[in-house]
């Protein structure tokens, strides 16, 4: 396969991404109702949840691709792992920022120590460290090998992190964020659910598109990757 030529499937995916993301924007602006208590700011919720979902999905993909590298020792897998984690980190940061934007008018604070939001923030730190690790390694092979091990370890600790923070919160409840967290703090109407699922789907497509683009970029930077054996 000639890496320099853009595959037509990717072009189709580009178009799909634009279509779906626009559709979700239209849905959230005009289709979903304004939440009674929180007002229009609640609409950030669709993007917040979808970004968090996309981030988690990317990190899992990054670990799977890392395992693929360790099995096959083909640097293409590492490019995929790197691409996934990079996109995942951007999604996680979007989730954190949108969470803060949401928290500010609702709870009058930029930050709530909600288990999900906190887990996402810690995940972001974990994956920032991933890039620091790669930056300190001098050969592509070492970056791929150690990056893969770290990516797998990182994904495995996420459930532990989430569980520990949630357990911590049930023992020391915060005054403001009662009732669990953002997701379950209000009752969702069928229209809200429709918009949420559409948004999850759109973000998944966006994620696939971005990862693919980033993967191609990594492949192009790495001229010998095609003949690696």
């Amino acid at each position: 396969m000639n890496v320099a030529k853009k595959p037509s499937l990717l072009v189709i995916l580009d178009i799909l991404t634009v279509l779906f993301m626009s559709a979700v924007l239209v849905l959230t602006w005009f289709f979903t109702p304004v939440e009674a208590v929180m007002g229009p700011v609640q609409k950030v919720f669709y993007f917040h949840i979808s970004a968090a979902w996309g981030g988690m999905l990317s990190f899992i993909l990054g670990a799977i691709a890392g395992a693929g590298y360790l099995r096959s020792r083909r640097l293409g897998w590492d490019s995929l792992s790197l691409a996934s984690i990079e996109v995942g980190l951007v999604f996680a940061l979007i989730a954190i920022l949108s969470g803060m934007i949401w928290a500010r008018p609702i709870w009058n604070t930029w930050w709530v120590w909600d288990p999900r939001l906190t887990t996402t923030a810690i995940m972001a730190l974990i994956y920032l460290a991933y890039f620091i690790l790669r930056g300190g390694l001098s050969t592509p092979e070492a970056r791929a090998r150690l990056g893969a091990v770290y990516a797998i370890l990182a994904v495995l600790t996420v459930p532990l992190t989430f569980f520990s923070i949630r357990l911590f919160r049930t023992i020391h409840p915060v005054v403001i964020a009662t009732g669990g967290g953002q997701g379950s703090a209000f009752n969702m109407t069928p229209r809200m659910l429709t918009a949420l699922f559409a948004s999850l789907l759109a973000f998944t497509i966006l994620l696939a598109d971005l990862v693919w683009h980033r993967f191609r970029l990594a492949q192009l930077q790495n001229p010998l990757s095609e003949e690696e054996n």
Binding site: A129, L133, T161
Partner: peptide, 10 residues
Amino acid sequence: VLLYPLALPI
């Protein structure tokens, strides 16, 4: 930098 975030649940 690698250890503390991963060790947080512990």
